[in-house]
Amino acid sequence: MRWCTPLVWLSTLGLIGGCSGPQSALEPAGPAADIIAWLWWGMFAFFTLVLLVMTGLWLYAMQRRGEPAKAEDAERITSRWIIGGGLILPLISIAILLAAGIPAGQYLITLPSDKTPLRIDAHAHRWWWEFSYPDAGITTASQLTIPVNTPIAIHGHTDNVIHAFWVPRLGGKIDLIPGRVNTLRLQASQTGLMRGQCAEFCGTGHAHMVFQVQVLSESDFAAWQQRQQQAIRVAAEHEPAVQTFHTHCAQCHSVRGVSNGSGGPDLSGIASRPLMLLPHQRHTSTSIEQWLQTPHPRFDSETRAATSALTPSARERIAAWLETLTE
């Protein structure tokens, strides 16, 4: 064990060197995640020390040679270890931890700021995310766009099973529970893309319940918001596609200014979104057409039922139109 322990820890440290990633809690991009990462590194350092000292003591005690302790010495050694290690050490550690942890928790819940927070409603479906901005009247699917350095108030709800909203680079998670609305404060301190994922097991599609977070500068965000509020103008060449869309799709899917369906994801910005099972790729007419032809048998039974009636040319038309719908 002597030779093994440092080896294992060294390899761990080596791994931690590579602690970045689009969903890594160790690469914080906002004040809440920052605090949590600091808490982690502090606890990691202290507890590693405790573990090494404890193991060292045990190994030393195992190897110690010489006469066994006499009765009265043994008594003294016992109370010294038990009171020192069993009472004082944990009490002090707990006091320090709580002194750091409780105020940190309070700060994370409120995330004080001069700006009024931007409210975004997160609605968890099986197995995709719907985000709406009640003040601006915008709804998007599977993509969360937020302004940098602005407090965000996520109001999470669901009408099916329990899910959890989680963007590790921004902060902790919150469960979305039927019958309740839970809120979470987040803030991003840098622009860019990151990844969020459902963290509460929600059934077959749990692993794919992913969303992309796009952090924009404040001016870019304002422009984005404005674009999202304008109705989509349908070019003449896509009119036939829109007609087919109305017949087969519009009951569930809305497209701004075109249809007002509910239940399925809003398709207004579909061409700017990652694919469900291939998040590195954007939707193109080919990928949409493929999906329409064979919707995923496991995760998309609704589309499957609706699209079985589509002719190949109708699929092609709709895909060509949807490809033009960018954010």
């Binding site: 605090i35 405790v50 998670k173 963290a199």
Partner: peptide, 30 residues
């Protein structure tokens, strides 16, 4: 018993970490 000591103490320590509410919000269900 020695193996137990090392592993269990390490597990106990990460348990104390998880009892810290803000840290738990981050790593819960991971």
């Amino acid at each position: 018993a020695l193996g137990f000591l090392f592993i269990f103490v390490a597990g106990g320590l990460t348990g104390v970490m998880l009892a810290l509410v803000p840290f738990d919000w981050q790593v819960h269900d991971t």
